[in-house]
Every structure is written in structure tokens, then in C-alpha cells.
């Protein structure tokens, strides 16, 4: 199949970027989206041009490294799918694709389609952990956890931290990411101890990283390749008010 590509090219964080146009004539519908870009890059290298830089790692949809906005959809138009798991059969012969990096002040473009997502790591750093006493390894299943709670925690833990929620949000808010991480730990007995302070630390860090606020559009939920629900954001909001009133932190 033939494709017309408009890809965001930017040589460095401070350089101005622009769209560059490419045409591919022989794209197999069985290729993944990243394989299609690999083919383009091989051609660019042979033509002695700079290949398009994009993040990727596992190419199995589980690591959260890849991600680009394709025709306005983070990770492309297919639901519950990362860019690496998106296949070219989802597009039509002759399609015109606009490929952009995640756009957010908190995610500066490093090069082309690669952005710096360490803002998300810093949110994790301030509260995305549970404190465990040192000593012998605890027995497995020593702490009984109900099925409903375990499922809720696992649903939240499905977040791979790709940043598609930020990319999709009209306010570039990281609320869905932060809410998922807060819930993942906060609903379990191991994480209950730091529940009040964790939510405050992580929300305050989220604000410091220049993400926008949540206006409950629901775009994050729709774009999330792991199907994380906005219900977690409601839970984060409730936990935050609870934390601020019961155990306020100084920051």
C-alpha cells in the first residue's frame, strides 16, 4: 500500500521543528506501525539523510516506550493498542498520516518523535513506592487481600507509563497516570500506610511538572492503550481531599 507521511522533525530540544513529507510506495499491511517507520528510516539512511528518531523497546505493547500521535490519536486510531502493536492493515492504501510527538510542556521533544517523559518518573519518585521493613522475605500470601481489591489494584497497575493520557488530554494533564499509580498502591494493605501522604506528594509533583489540570473530558481514558478508567481520577480526588484533611504534608 502507498502512504503519504507528514512527520514532525526536530533536531534538538531547542531547535524549531517542522513537518517533513515522505512517500512510501510499498508498505505491507502486515507491518506494524514502527516497522513501517523502520522501512522509511532504512531508505533515509541509504539516501544519506537523518533517520526519524522515535522511542521504542519491547514492540510487544507492554513496556510503554513507544508512542506518537497519529492523525490526532495518541498511539493511532485503534483502541487499547500501543503504536508498536498497531498494524498497517488498519490504514488504507493512499492514506495521508500526520505523525507528531506527544505535545506537552512537561514532555520536551528531544528529537523528532522522541520526548523526555522523566516528569512521570519524578511523580513516581515522590510517592510511587511502599515502605517495607528489612529482614527475611515475607511469606507469599501472608497478607490476605480480597479479590475485588486485588482486581482494582491490578487494573490500575496495568498502566505502562507511556504518556498517551497526557498526549490525549486537551489540558495536557497527567491525572490519569498519577491516579493509576496512586490507586495501584493505595488500595492494597501494603500501601495503605502511606496512602494519605503519597497522594499529596504525587499530586503536588504532578502540578510542579507543569502538567495541566483535569477537566473530566475523558480523552485520556479513550486513548489509554491499557484501558485505565477515569474512575481512578475520581478516587485520586477523593483520596487527595482525605489526605489533606487527615494528614497534611508540608511541602
Amino acid at each position: 500500500m502507498k502512504l503519504k507521511l507528514h512527520i514532525w522533525r526536530q533536531t534538538s530540544q531547542d531547535a524549531p521543528g517542522a513537518f517533513a513529507d515522505y512517500e512510501l510506495d510499498d508498505v505491507s499491511p502486515d507491518m506494524s506501525f514502527l516497522e513501517m517507520l523502520d522501512v522509511l528510516n532504512e531508505r533515509l539512511i541509504l539516501d544519506e539523510q537523518e533517520p526519524v528518531v522515535f522511542d521504542n523497546d519491547c514492540r510487544e505493547g507492554i513496556c510503554g516506550a513507544c508512542g506518537m500521535v497519529i492523525n490526532g490519536h495518541p498511539h493511532g486510531p485503534q483502541k487499547l493498542t500501543t503504536t508498536c502493536q498497531l498494524h498497517m492493515r488498519k490504514f488504507r492504501d493512499g492514506d495521508e498520516l500526520w505523525i507528531e510527538p506527544w505535545r506537552a510542556k512537561a514532555f520536551p521533544v528531544l528529537r523528532d518523535l522522541m520526548v523526555d517523559r522523566s516528569a512521570l518518573d519524578r511523580i513516581i519518585e515522590v510517592g510511587g513506592y511502599v515502605s517495607v521493613n528489612t529482614g527475611g522475605v515475607p511469606d507469599a500470601n501472608a497478607i490476605p487481600i480480597g479479590k475485588g481489591v486485588a482486581d482494582l489494584s491490578m487494573d490500575a497497575a496495568a498502566c505502562i507509563g507511556c504518556g498517551a493520557c497526557v498526549a490525549a488530554c486537551p489540558n495536557a494533564s497527567a491525572s490519569l497516570f498519577t491516579a493509576a499509580k496512586i490507586t495501584h498502591l493505595g488500595v492494597l494493605p501494603q500501601g495503605e500506610i502511606e496512602r494519605n501522604t503519597r497522594v499529596q506528594e504525587m499530586v503536588a509533583q504532578m502540578d510542579e511538572e507543569a502538567f495541566g489540570h483535569c477537566t473530566n473530558h475523558g480523552e485520556c481514558d479513550a486513548a489509554c492503550p491499557k484501558g485505565i478508567s477515569v474512575d481512578f481520577i475520581a478516587r485520586m480526588n477523593r483520596d487527595f481531599v482525605r489526605g489533606v484533611t487527615r494528614e497534611p504534608i508540608t511541602r
Binding site: 507528514h6 513537518f19 500521535v69 492523525n71 490526532g72 490519536h73 486510531p77 500526520w98 507528531e100 505535545r103 506537552a104 510542556k105 512537561a106 490525549a168 489540558n171 495536557a172 494533564s173 507543569a210 502538567f211 495541566g212 473530558h217 475523558g218 480523552e219 481514558d221 479513550a222 486513548a223
Partner: peptide, 13 residues
Amino acid sequence: ARPIAYKRVAYED
């Protein structure tokens, strides 16, 4: 929070 706007925007929810 989003100094550079998207060229293409597709709203879903």
C-alpha cells in the same frame, strides 16, 4: 501546559 498545539486533533470521549 501545551505550548505547541497538535496539527491534527481527533476528539473521542
